[in-house]
């Protein structure tokens, strides 16, 4: 579904991405991990069209979307959440989801008919708050709303940048179950960034480990943890998260 090939990006003197490649199939949950500043968010932003890579290509379902801008990528089927929550705070919870669904109705009407705003709200335990302003929700609910909103786009690819950050263990578990539900119901490719390795290991089929802008390992979750370079990066980083 998604294939990222040799994407590089430099900010001033900082090489945030050095020829990073990865791929993610439909229905797959890929964990993207690595220490702070490894380039994970930058990679997600390059895929979502927010950043134009200096080199390399991003293809979604065979279509080139490299550097096409966030609006175009969203219409092409990239749904995302942000590392720092970005909701439409004065709009109601329902309106937040509705806004995404409008786009879906215009670009993928068949998918939109299947999704249904009310169903999404119920799935993410937001139906009790449908008519309150999104900014008044608790932190955990805001995180869930951001995911529900991204899903209302009917995405082919879902990018979740630290969805479990700031959640307690129970909330993380609920979230993990919900994300598995997405795979089952929507079947989109999903990339999850998080520093909570327990959350990542429990959820992901495959891992992709980044360090200093490079992808240093990728593969099945258990295999990756046997990779010496991954161990090196994570040793000394005792108890990440």
């Amino acid at each position: 579904m998604l294939s990222v090939e040799a994407v590089s990006k430099t900010f001033g003197g900082v090489q945030a991405l050095r020829s990073a490649s990865l791929s993610c199939a439909a229905g797959e949950i890929l964990g993207l991990i690595g220490p702070n500043g490894a380039g994970k968010s930058t990679l997600v932003n390059a895929i979502a069209g927010v950043l134009k890579p200096d080199a390399g290509s991003v293809k979604l379902a065979g279509n080139e979307i490299t550097g096409h801008g966030p609006e175009h990528c969203a219409r092409a089927g990239v749904g995302r959440t942000f590392q720092t929550i970005r909701l439409f705070r004065d709009l109601t919870v329902r309106q937040n989801v509705e806004v995404a669904h409008i786009t879906c109705r215009s670009v993928r009407p068949d998918v939109a008919a299947r999704i249904g705003v009310d169903r999404l709200l119920a799935q993410y335990q937001l139906d009790g708050f449908a008519d309150v302003p999104a900014g008044t929700l608790s932190y955990g609910s805001q995180r869930r709303l951001e995911i529900a909103r991204a899903l209302a786009l009917g995405p082919l690819l879902l990018l979740l940048d630290e969805p479990a950050a700031g959640l307690n263990e129970d909330e993380s578990e609920t979230l993990a179950v919900a994300i598995e539900g997405i795979r089952r119901d929507v079947g989109c490719a999903t990339i999850v960034i998080d520093h909570d390795l327990r959350f990542i290991n429990r959820l992901c089929d495959r891992l992709c480990v980044m360090d200093q802008g490079q992808v240093i390992a990728s593969g099945q979750t258990e295999e990756v943890w046997r990779d010496p370079r991954v161990i090196e990066v994570y040793v000394g980083q005792s108890e990440t998260s």
């Binding site: 909701l87 705070r89 709009l91 309106q95 806004v99 409008i102």
Partner: peptide
Amino acid sequence: SHWGLQLRASAQSPQAAAALGID
């Protein structure tokens, strides 16, 4: 209207609105 709702959304978070395909 859809336009009004999308415009209000983009006024509150341009990045999030762009990520939903809003022009």
